[in-house]
Design a protein around this nucleic acid. Structure first.
Lengths: 205, 205
DNA sequence: ACGCTTGTTCGGTTTCAATTCGGAAAATTT
DNA sequence: AAATTTTCCGAATTGAAACCGAACAAGCGT
């Protein structure tokens, strides 16, 4: 940011710019969004963008940060309740909230997530990974019998990455071959069956 | 294509252009690749591009088609052998070949796949989906006991999408938290545990 | 009310990449 | 070997978008 906004008015402008960034991004994708579009949507002049952002890239950076922060803010408060549920319900619950979150504001974040998969989405996304790992850890703590499962980091990796991608892809698909509930149920079954089978295997040793 | 190449020389030019497209794409991503770069890498003049392609977009289209065709050509011959293996080995085998395929030619297709996730690359990818569905179907035919599993379409959807994404993401990650073998093993366990548990559930009814 | 700081605008400049075009060179045909 | 077709080229054109900066406007302390 070239300059910090000090007055209330200026803060509103910065907000409007970031807001407009999301809208433009959702409409046309990141490559096709221009500074003029962002400025028009925000209802400010193009020059104003450069008062608070070094360049277009920085707008995207701030958007990315906000996206991740919002996602974490969505998940954090869910942890205490989710952690106490049986595994299947826990997954379904989390996925439901995730879908609602992606679809809020006219699917703003869904459309962003779609492009974010390609963008340099690695740096900013780390805190999100951490939050999800935290969720898994806490879940395991509340269900000590699951601690015997092998390869927990691997399974977390698969379910987090594969799960997020499946959901985003499904929600983006105008004619998906299965319903969202089927997908969510499938993911929940996947996790629960896996844990059950693993626990059975450990038991039998 | 604006014009069809008739002479041998011209066919080589077209090939060089598409080839150069992959190299440029892998280096900088699709948004940042310019016609000049492609032409330079291909060792032809910029004008030559427009002899055989209407515009830059068409070059990407042809690349996309070739990518999908190559992927299918990689998978098709594997089907007969994979289909006869136990589920875990089958998954491991397929994933191993998939990794080798993505990493060939200096990771050309891996780098493309990374960006392809965002691009509107859905149309061309349909034949690939079909091939993978075919693989699943044939597998089920060779293992009749698995036909009782519920939600096969849903599980295919999850494993195909989630699996592909996990692998691509993992291979792109310079410092992955787990090894590729762990990931592949995890995916294989996921599938095998799921099928075992499902079959046990069906049995007990 | 007045001067100073902060905020905004708008037109202009610059940069840069896609595409065109006309002609030269190579291959093919007659 | 002349004529014709195909191929190749790269300077020039075009258009669009990023970015700048001088001038105008709004807030704010005194």
């Amino acid at each position: 940011m070239a300059r910090k906004p000090v007055q209330q008015r200026a803060k509103a402008t910065v907000d409007a710019i970031v807001e407009a960034g999301f809208i433009a991004m959702a409409e046309r994708g990141p490559a096709a969004t221009t500074t003029r579009q962002i400025a028009d949507i925000a209802g400010v002049g193009v020059g104003s963008l450069y008062e608070y952002f070094e360049n277009k890239e920085e707008i995207f950076q701030v958007m990315s940060e906000r996206f991740v922060a919002d996602t974490i803010a969505m998940i954090q408060p869910l942890i205490p309740t989710i952690v106490r549920k049986p595994i299947k319900e826990a997954v379904l619950d989390l996925l439901g909230h995730f879908r609602d979150f992606l679809q809020a504001n006219n699917e703003r974040y869904l459309k962003c997530a779609r492009y974010a998969m390609a963008l340099d989405f690695e740096q900013h996304v780390e805190p999100l990974q951490k939050t999800l790992s935290e969720l898994v850890t806490q879940y395991l703590m509340h269900h000590p019998e699951t601690l015997k499962i092998r390869n927990i980091p691997t399974m977390s990796y698969i379910m987090i990455n594969g799960g997020i991608y499946s959901v985003v892809r499904h929600l983006c698909d105008p004619a998906p071959p299965i319903t969202f509930d089927e997908l969510a149920g499938g993911l929940a079954d996947m996790v629960s069956h896996y844990t059950e089978r693993e626990m059975a295997l450990v038991e039998s040793q």
